[in-house]
Design a protein around this nucleic acid. Structure first.
Lengths: 248, 248
DNA sequence: GAATTAAGCTGCCGTAGATCAGTTTTTAGC
DNA sequence: GCTAAAAACTGATCTACGGCAGCTTAATTC
């Protein structure tokens, strides 16, 4: 079970960037030498809040986090999920006011990196800056995929699509394989991410189990019929841009 | 009527970047000297298609464009609208396969800029690279706002929210003012952007007219009650990040 | 300025998913 | 291993919005 990767430090970020383009030793070292303050957080803790102007960026080392937005009457929209190697508030490098909140989904380890040091890093290593920029672009592509789902897909298709996406992201991070991955989200979390209610998510999940598409128990998702799941959601992985870049 | 701005060239881009940080003469000149191929396009023409690997980026000089995604059975999701000064496929600087299509909404003038020249520009002027990166981050913030709407807002709120957003974007570009702006979108376009049907958009628009919130006729939107429109949509302009940056 | 087409509008009925109000099962803490 | 709380699940009912089909008005074209 691939769950003991780079919990010790910043290597999940290096792994992620390195999966796109080859890093020089100098670049690798510069990342490793970033000053970080490491924090262990419980589940469901806010990391940064809507409206804040944080001076640090948050790198997830272990666990899951999400971006979300609160509306009136307690309505919540989850905007994205994040795993080890992600910097969900990297945008604060260039826009200073948060337009969403960031919170853990389960127990998580996060590293806070001063914004100024990240800025310096990207100034000194344009190649790294490009990789980080690229990362925010893939982020945006994922938003587009979710938007397409919420606007034009049924609940069944949306849930299937999210499972495909999360599985591939976890697999790319070395945190999943063999059509099996951690899934620490509650049905309420899924609902808030997909624009549904937890009641409806519950019914659709049962329908998916009825079709022998998935098993979902005790925070583990097993995809029993990958191909059918792809088909059910019209999933096209292009937007994840997981391919290795040819040349630097 | 503010409609005769910089149609001649690339100045809408300079205006936009210059509204965020002051540009040096050198930077301004470098932008002006970008090799461009200018094209006049009819309404509803594809500029780039889902799956393409374009060698040029597209700068809108005049008119409107949109990003969209097609699904099975002719379902269409519009992902964003673009006006003069936008480069809706700037992302192809760093990820090479398009995961959506780009099309004009009405007659438009666009400039095609070779990707390589834009890459060069951003390598030579890190300050410009940062501004372009920032632009893609605001883009992502807009996706988040739309997602929040599609997931958790009613049709009425969503339409009101879009009107607020487009008015402010057009105003910032000098293309609107006095609570009046061009709105070349059909009700079907609005529906495809907001995850609704044109029939429902029609009914909601009438409701909004009934509440004396807006006038929408002959491709012109007049916001009759700005404050009520803001309130109806719980609109918070933070995500547009229109403020000028303090220091470079 | 007649013809054609696209966009806007209406009414009726259907349904995916919401809402409410629980009960049962699982998980986590001591 | 017991307890408390959270999550999962169920059934009944409701509604915002969709689907369809036809009609009207406005915009283009020649």
């Amino acid at each position: 079970m691939p769950s003991s990767f780079g919990q010790s430090g910043i290597d999940m970020l290096i792994r992620k960037l390195g999966s796109i383009a080859n890093l020089s030793d100098e670049e690798r070292q510069a990342i490793e030498r970033l000053p970080v303050r490491i924090n262990h957080l419980d589940a469901r803790q806010d990391i940064v809040r809507d409206g804040d102007m944080p001076s640090h960026c948050c790198l997830i080392l272990d666990g899951w986090a999400c971006r979300y937005k609160l509306l009136s009457q307690g309505k919540r929209q989850i905007l994205s999920f994040h795993i080890a190697g992600d910097i969900p508030d990297l945008q604060s490098l260039h826009v200073h006011t948060m337009d969403y909140s960031l919170a853990t989904m389960k127990r998580a380890t996060v590293a806070f990196i001063p914004r100024e040091n990240l800025k310096e890093l990207s100034a000194r290593f344009p190649n790294l800056a490009a990789l980080l920029w690229r990362d925010t672009l893939v982020d945006a592509a994922t938003f587009r995929a979710w938007m397409t789902g919420m606007g034009r897909r049924t609940a069944y298709e949306r849930i299937a699509h999210l499972f495909c996406e999360m599985y591939l992201k976890l697999q790319a991070a070395g945190l999943a394989g063999d059509y099996r991955c951690p899934m620490p989200l509650t049905q309420t979390d899924l609902a808030d991410a997909l624009g549904l209610t937890s009641v409806h998510v519950n019914r659709v999940l049962q329908e998916m189990r009825g079709h022998a598409l998935i098993t979902l128990r005790r925070h583990t998702l097993v995809i029993e019929a990958w191909h059918d799941l792809l088909q059910a959601s019209e999933f096209d992985p292009t937007y994840l841009h997981l391919e290795k870049r040819a040349a630097a």
